[in-house]
């Protein structure tokens, strides 16, 4: 549905050469002894009204990308423009009105709601901060949002512990929606949920996207979940983006060997479809000291000499299909 239209749409979010290095401090004086290169020179675009899925293993920097875009974490360098305005150059006061347009749904529905206030108040907190409406109107907006995610008015006075994981995640969605944003970072919104209710939350996200014309950056480690919600998918490895293309091409014809390994590692819930899985040797190297050349070359089944010496550029090898691999040309 959405993916065919997405290509004609304008760019809502443009990320250019985004870098985030976290200092590692040690010793008595807490001097910086090393840098964790969590996000290292990542560039991409999110188009108006689309869902960009972002996948990778834990520690690949996908959450940091999401948080740096919203400036919940300050980027080390790079540019993030939202609707043509460069967020990285703004001070907090300039940023505040824009924060209404950009929201986040957190990974852990058990940890992201204040246990001491009723959930209706959690949902209207953003309205309070941005001085929208009177208290009574805010409450009405909150209830309205809760109804949008399938909860009832009487739920608004209850506390988080009275809800199941799926309901809590829906409350998190209602809270993100209350300010009527344009763009939402969904950071692993279903990873903590049982499989039997995951698709309920995904369906709600899809319906709300249609209704409000939302744009999503959908971060997840599960490639099959991402397939069901994304128009385009980006794959990250060790702080770098290695592949970015539309959903069809990524799942039918992945070009990067890492993407292929990820896809083949996904189990199929059917014994008769058992097949040989491409298993990568070893573990993800430390982002403290990533390998030279292509960061994936230490585990790549098809690496050639060049891969360990020169870093491949992230470039468009086919229309709309970006990949960082020497062998994918």
């Amino acid at each position: 549905m959405m993916n065919t239209q997405a290509s004609n749409k304008s760019d809502l979010l443009v990320v250019k050469n985004l870098v985030k290095h976290f200092p590692v401090r040690s010793g008595l004086l807490q001097r910086t002894s090393a840098w964790v290169k969590a996000v290292d020179n990542v560039s991409f675009v999110v188009k108006q009204g689309e869902t960009l899925g972002m996948v990778g293993e834990s520690g690949c920097g996908k959450t940091t990308v999401g948080r740096t875009i919203l400036r919940l974490v300050e980027p080390t360098s790079g540019e993030v423009s939202f609707n043509g305005q460069d967020l990285t150059k703004m001070n907090n006061r300039e940023l505040k009105p824009l924060r209404r347009d950009m929201q986040i749904i957190f990974q852990d529905p058990y940890a992201s709601l204040n246990p001491r206030i009723p959930i209706g108040e959690s949902v209207m907190e953003g309205l309070q901060i941005h001085n929208i409406g009177r208290p009574k109107e805010r409450w009405e907006i909150a209830i309205n949002m809760l109804k949008k995610v399938g909860l009832e008015e009487y739920h608004a006075r209850r506390y988080p512990h009275e809800f199941s994981g799926g309901q809590r995640q829906r409350i998190g969605i209602a809270r993100a929606l209350a300010l009527n944003p344009k763009f939402i970072v969904c950071d692993e919104p279903v990873s903590a949920l049982d499989v039997s209710i995951q698709s309920q939350v995904l369906n709600i996200l899809k319906d709300l996207q249609q209704e409000f014309g939302l744009t999503y950056l959908f971060i997840a480690h599960n490639l099959s979940v991402v397939e069901h919600i994304s128009d385009r998918v980006a794959v990250m490895y060790l702080g770098k983006m290695v592949e970015l293309t539309d959903r069809e091409s990524l799942y039918r014809e992945p070009l990067h060997p890492y993407t292929r390994a990820l896809l083949s590692a996904i189990p199929v819930a059917h014994p008769s479809q058992k097949r040989e899985r491409t298993i990568l040797k070893g573990d993800v190297p430390s982002p403290l000291n990533p390998p030279k050349g292509c960061r994936f070359h230490t585990r790549c089944p098809i690496a050639v000499e060049k891969c360990s010496q020169q870093e491949p550029e992230f470039k468009e090898v086919r229309p709309g299909h970006f990949v960082a691999c020497w062998l994918a040309e």
């Binding site: 499989v195 209710i197 397939e227 039918r252 819930a269």
Partner: peptide
Amino acid sequence: RMLMASVPRLRANTEPEFITGQ
């Protein structure tokens, strides 16, 4: 049956379902 139908599958044409309630 419903549990199996809720598993998202790769390259499937069907959307995963969910079980209402808890």
